[in-house]
Structures are given as structure tokens and as C-alpha cells.
Design a protein around this nucleic acid. Structure first.
Ligand SMILES: [Mn+2]
Ligand SMILES: [Mn+2]
Ligand SMILES: [Mn+2]
Ligand SMILES: [Mn+2]
Lengths: 218, 218
DNA sequence: TTCGTGGATTAGACAAGCCTAAATATCGTC
DNA sequence: GACGATATTTAGGCTTGTCTAATCCACGAA
């Protein structure tokens, strides 16, 4: 059984490896609002427990056991987020903190029943895939809106940075998971982009925003 | 903000005072599967935080603040139990452990939304009252089935000891919260009691069982 | 009233997590 | 290939929550 702190560290490692190529001590510390030295301690402990390989000064890699455990955490986190939004009416910008707590309640029966109750959803409110009970993830090939060319017609698949501010901005502009839109123009000067939602008139989004929108062909 | 352990101690104090007249260090330790010396430490800490008065060697009393906090815990615990049974299909004998974890996730918005989602239930799956958001409890006057006389017609209001074994026994006999029954005979020899459910034939229950069934006039 | 007994508290130790400060390693740059 | 910036680890310390063993106290029995 892992402690809450061990779980949070493990999940941070998993997520950072998912997002980039490596999970640095510094980045883990930053994500968990703790210090690098504390992270080193915890990495040693997780390595001793066989959840990851820690090569001092080089980096960290998850073992199969560690990956599996991390996927369970991600599963619980995203299922609870889905519950909060779909059933309790929370906004998608309000659920992260709460799910960060709920994810640590580890009972397979609870997780699986919740999954069924929600209709075995494939994706959470931010468009992130929810691993099934075996840790399997439905893969999709998405790319950033910022990488799209003029004329492309795409659908928003996920928001890759779930900062409250970004989510509320998207709310305000009417951009949701599943929204379909056409790229009308890309301005070289600042990277801003004019987009036109399927039902609505065109407007502009900054590079910062388009960078964090994952889209797929409509 | 209280830690998980502080909350568990506070709730134990509240529950023991509710059930009996005092909350002894020994009983708290037993309930939390810890040791008396650890409990003393924690009582000091809770006293310092103004949640209870601790008179060494005498006993412990909750302050208004402590009682209010304990009621929030009880509220969350019972709401989650209700959720698990009503929505996720858990048996009433399977929910205690899980709720023991979930109760520590403290976000007023979550608790209140869950309460509404469940239809602001007055009682949990074991018949125990659920405090409202202000900590108010719907009072009822119940008495033990074991104290009933021949001929009394009553309805089961609550089970005062939520041991898995007792709950499964009640399941097997078809006794539920709300079940109506008539006391047919009380045997002085062993305190066992013959009861007849409204729809069904009579059978006997032991003193141990009737002692833990809280009933109200039908 | 005195005593024995059992519950309660205190003393002292330990592990888990976290911190700061100091030491150490890596890596890009000159 | 040495240097300095930066990341990482180590050393040492603090707090929290727990334990065991020793001591203290209340209370009922004699
Ligand atoms: Mn978490
Ligand atoms: Mn999410
Ligand atoms: Mn608890
Ligand atoms: Mn209950």
C-alpha cells in the first residue's frame, strides 16, 4: 500500500514522462509544490518499492508495476472529475483539487462501480483519456491547434493544460470539448489565429491558447 | 484545518459521547485501533485547538466548535454511505470502510452538491440521521427492540451497531430499515424474541440482535 | 482510611515527510 | 579540456503521529 505522498510522486513521474521525455527532480518538486531534496528522498523510496528505476543524476523510469499503479491513480482521478462534472454539476475548472483528494481512496469495487455508474466514459471533462480497469487507454492521434494550417476543419479533443484561467477563458469563448471549428487565418506576427466555430461567428485566439488545444480532424 | 487523524479522534469522541455518557481514552483507542497513550497526545492537541476540553484523569467534553466539526464529519460519512448504497449498489454492510476514507475529503461545495444529488436524505442506510449543512439533526424518539413488550407493533428505525456480521444476518432474515413487525413473545430464559414481520411468517431473534435494533411505533 | 487495581498520563524512542544548507555531478561554453 | 551555471543529492534537523515502558491517579473494597 502506498501513502498519499508516494502516490502523488508516482503520478507526477508518470504524467511528466507522458508529457515530455523525462521527469526531472526539479519538475516533480515544482508540480507537487515541494523541494527537490524531498523528491530525491521519495524517488529512493519508490525505487526500493520497485515502482521505478532511479539512476542518480540521470533520471527516472517507471517499472511495469509503477506504471500500472500510476494508471490506476489516473483512472480514479479522471473518473471522479467526470462524476463531479456530469453528476454534481461542477464546472470543469473546479474539479481538479477535489479529484486530487478523491483519487487516493483506493477500493477497486468503488472505482469499478463508479466507472459503470458513469457509463464507462472514455474521456474526462478535459478530454483526457480514462484508463480502463486493466490500465488500457484509448489512444487517439491529436495535434495542437497552433500547428494547424489555414482552412483546416477540426474538433477540439482535449485541453492539455487544465489551468483554471485557461478553462474559464475557453468557457467565455464558447470553446468546449467536441466543438468543431475552421482555421481561417494564422497571423505570423504573434501566432494568433482566427477561428470560426461551426455555429457562430469568427474570433481570434492567442498562440498561448491554441498551443494548449489538442484537436483531431473533424 | 484538521489532519485525518485529528478528525478520526474528534469523531470518535463525538460518537462515544453520543452513545454513552463519557468518552474514555481507552475506548477511543480501542475504536481507532491505536494505543491509549497516543490518544492522550491527540486529546491534548485537540484541546489546544479549542475543539474539546480535556480534564486529565477525568474526561473530555466537546466545545461548540468541536461538536460542529464532528457533525460535519458525520454528515459527510453518512452522505457517502448513502451514495454508495443508493447510487452505486453497495450492500449496507460494505460501505463503512470506504466512507471512513471519503469523509475526510472536505469541500463544502462537494458535500452540499452530493446532499442535493441524493435528495437531501434524512437518514443513512443504517437508519442514522444525517446532519444538514448547519449540523442540525432530525431527532426521533426510538427505543431498542429488546425493550419492547408482547403485542407491540413497531417499525425498524436504525441499527445501532453496524458490524458486518449483524448486517448480513439482518439481510438474511429480511429485516430492513422501515420493516414493520409485531412482537409475539418474549422468552425470559434467554431474552430471545419471536417477531412477525408484516408480510411474512414469524421467527425468532436473539437478545444480541434485538438489543441493536432501534425501533419506533409503527 | 488505607490499598490495590486498572485506567490515564508522561517519558523517551522511532519512522515518515518535509525543510535548509552544503556538497557533488552534469553539461554547454569558451 | 577547464569553468561555471544549474540540477541533484547528501547531511542534518524539525514536526507529526505512533509505540512501549514507566509513572501517576481515582475509586471501590476492606
Ligand atoms: Mn493527489
Ligand atoms: Mn482532467
Ligand atoms: Mn475516517
Ligand atoms: Mn452508517
Amino acid at each position: 500500500m502506498l501513502t498519499r505522498s508516494e502516490e502523488d510522486h508516482l503520478k507526477a513521474v508518470y504524467t511528466l514522462l507522458q508529457e515530455g521525455d523525462s521527469a526531472s527532480t526539479k519538475d516533480i518538486a515544482h508540480r507537487l509544490r515541494t523541494k527537490a531534496s524531498s523528491v530525491t528522498d521519495m524517488l529512493k523510496k519508490l525505487a526500493e518499492k520497485g515502482l521505478l528505476k532511479h539512476e542518480p543524476y540521470y533520471g527516472v523510469k517507471l517499472t511495469a508495476k509503477g506504471r500500472s499503479h500510476a494508471l490506476q491513480l489516473v483512472r480514479r482521478h479522471r473518473l471522479w472529475e467526470t462524476f463531479l462534472v456530469q453528476r454534481l454539476g461542477f464546472g470543469w475548472d473546479e474539479v481538479h483539487e477535489v479529484a486530487e483528494q478523491l483519487e487516493h481512496v483506493a477500493y477497486d469495487k468503488l472505482t469499478d462501480r463508479l466507472d459503470e455508474y458513469l457509463g464507462k466514459p472514455g474521456f474526462d471533462p478535459h478530454g483526457d483519456p480514462i484508463p480502463d480497469r486493466h490500465g488500457r487507454i484509448r489512444e487517439r492521434k491529436t495535434h495542437r491547434l497552433s500547428a494547424c494550417a489555414t482552412g483546416e476543419v477540426v474538433r477540439i479533443a482535449a485541453v492539455s493544460e487544465t489551468t483554471d484561467g485557461l478553462l474559464r477563458l475557453l468557457d467565455a469563448k464558447g470553446l468546449r470539448i467536441g466543438s468543431q471549428l475552421t482555421v481561417q487565418e494564422v497571423h505570423a506576427f504573434d501566432g494568433s489565429m482566427d477561428i470560426k466555430p461551426k455555429n457562430g461567428s469568427a474570433f481570434s485566439v492567442s498562440k498561448e491558447v491554441s498551443h494548449h488545444l489538442q484537436v483531431e480532424p473533424a
